[in-house]
Simulated assay, not measured.
Amino acid sequence: MDFSGKVVVITGASSGIGAACAAAFAQHSAALVLVGRNRPNLERVAQQCRELAGGEPLVICADVSVDADVERIVTDTVDKHGRIDVLVNNAGITSVGGLGGGVAALDAVMATNTRAPYLLAGLALPHLARSRGNVVNVSSCLSTKPNTMLMPYCMSKAALDMFTKCLALEAGPQGVRVNAVNPGPVRTEIFRRAGVSAADNERLYAGLEGALPLGRVADAAEVADLVVYLASARARSVTGACYPIDCGLLLGENTTI
């Protein structure tokens, strides 16, 4: 797979799956636009990409839940590169709790996980149509597997899956493909950032490893490989698909997260 001359925008690129996507696309010679809220982490990821491929990523410190920041992502990218070929909507947050947590938690999660990809894809679509590019949304297997303690997150990812399918229908006639990857448990910092202690986080992953059919959880690089495939010409006939990568989580009722 070769992304030479292709401009790839990755949100949430400062850590976890986003950082792994940045490294993977760098290895395939993409011109990278790295978006995140944590500038020091973004700069570290950018340096890793330079060491891998020698290119110079465009680093954009932005909060995708802020409309003006989303608009700036597109403007800065087009000002520098003149095009957008791939949009990876990866930025995401979670909130631990159910209905009793109140509506503020839902609003915050939906703003980042659902509204931001909707707005960013809409602004990027004219550029993607010109390049006959594509969108890859990073969703979750919890879009279809309910969890009462992650209710807002589950809702946001279910909405993201439907957005993926609807946008694939709308953008297909313009030559733009839209797909999603739906990871199960992946060792990232998402639960730690939601307030889970280091010890509880480790117990969570250890319990998942014992419960999942494959006896392991995925790492971020594996998810990135699937993102790169869907963004590549090898997947040129794939659109409107939501691909699970979950170590078997969705196979049985005895596996929970």
Rank of each mutant, 00 (worst) to 15 (best):
A31F: 14
L230P: 00
D107F: 09
G184T: 01
Y118N: 11
L106T: 03
G55R: 14
P213A: 10
I73R: 01
A111D: 05
A194I: 09
A23E: 08
S140Q: 04
R193V: 15
A158K: 03
C247S: 03
M149F: 15
Q47L: 14
A171V: 06
G175V: 13
C154P: 03
V196R: 07
L167R: 03
A211R: 11
V59I: 09
V223H: 00
A91M: 06
Y118E: 10
E202N: 08
R193W: 15
V74G: 05
V45H: 08
D85S: 13
L87H: 01
G240K: 04
P146H: 05
C21Q: 07
D200E: 12
V9Y: 00
L169A: 15
K6D: 07
S232V: 01
M155D: 05
E189S: 06
V186K: 05
L214A: 14
P213V: 15
S14G: 02
R72Q: 06
R216C: 09
G184K: 02
F25P: 02
P152D: 06
E253I: 13
E202S: 12
N147S: 11
R44P: 06
A26P: 06
P40K: 14
L99Y: 06
V103C: 04
D246V: 02
L251R: 06
L142H: 08
I73G: 00
G215T: 04
